[in-house]
């Protein structure tokens, strides 16, 4: 019993220390005069790595989730003769929840784990250390571009995910199941509010982007510099980031749509 309490205490302290180190890392990376002009090419490269390379999985997942939503929604709505509500069902589910959340989960798995592994490996092969000895701050040179690339890319990916999902819903609902095309769009327009639904969804995905990117960078930067340590850190990134996204999603949903 006492051992378990001790374990709990140790875990809590460990988590708090990790949070502290993550904050210090972020602070070190972002504090002071940013030089995106001199290093704009680095930022572009990272947007390519985390954003463009995640595009395919986002497009495919978005399309299929939209199609499944339409298929599932149609069978339920048809029972009540409310097929015309299919558009709002698909759009609202995607914009408010599935778009930001699924994008964040996919992003954590695709880009987050890659970031962790890359930075962990740079640490293990002393690249970060040698950069420091060359009087180049690895926080500014390595962490900052990846941070901004993540925070910029993920909301863009979520927007694309939403749009593709709604088109996927159209594909199944209208082209296959025969819901009226005009009804699909107009019912959607009548029920989706730009401010309430689209903007709030984007805010959600910006928060998730921050959370996932910081977790991924921190886990890599803090990784034990061995192959085992890096593989552990990569797993931890995916697990921690996914749980954090779901936790934050609940809080944000309660604040945005709950009251």
């Amino acid at each position: 019993m006492l051992n378990q309490i001790q374990q709990l205490g140790a875990n809590t302290l460990g988590t708090l220390q990790g949070l502290g180190r993550a904050t210090l890392m972020l602070f070190g990376a972002l504090w002071g005069r940013p030089r995106p002009l001199k290093n704009w090419h680095l930022y572009l490269k990272q947007i390519y790595v985390v954003g463009v390379l995640s595009l395919l999985i986002i497009l495919v997942s978005g399309l299929f989730i939209g199609m499944v939503l339409a298929l599932q929604g149609y069978t339920v709505l048809a029972k009540f003769g409310a097929e015309q509500m299919l558009g709002p069902l698909v759009a609202l589910s995607l914009l408010r929840e599935l778009g930001p959340v699924v994008t964040a989960l996919l992003f954590a798995g695709r880009a987050g784990s890659a970031l962790t592994a890359e930075i962990g490996l740079m640490k293990a092969t002393e690249q970060l250390s040698s950069m420091e000895m060359m009087a180049v701050d690895p926080l500014r040179r390595v962490i900052a571009p990846r941070f901004w690339a993540g925070v910029i890319s993920m909301p863009l990916l979520a927007l694309i995910f939403n749009a593709v999902g709604i088109l996927g819903g159209h594909l199944v609902g209208v082209d296959w199941l025969g819901v009226d095309a005009g009804g699909y769009w107009s019912a959607m327009q009548a029920n989706v509010d730009f401010q309430q639904d689209v903007v709030n969804g984007v805010i959600k995905s910006i928060v998730f982007a921050f959370v996932v990117t910081v977790i991924a960078l921190h886990k890599g930067f803090d990784a034990v510099p061995t192959s085992e340590g890096i593989s552990q850190a990569t797993t931890q990134t995916v697990v921690t980031a996914s749980l954090a996204v779901l936790g934050f999603d609940f809080v944000l949903t309660a604040v945005m749509f709950g009251g």
Partner: peptide, 19 residues
């Protein structure tokens, strides 16, 4: 191309989907 795609998605959401 990536950014343009995202802007197109936003436009679709703003003009065609949302009210």
């Amino acid at each position: 191309f990536f950014v343009a795609l995202a802007i197109a998605a936003l436009l679709l959401l703003a003009l065609k989907v949302a009210n």
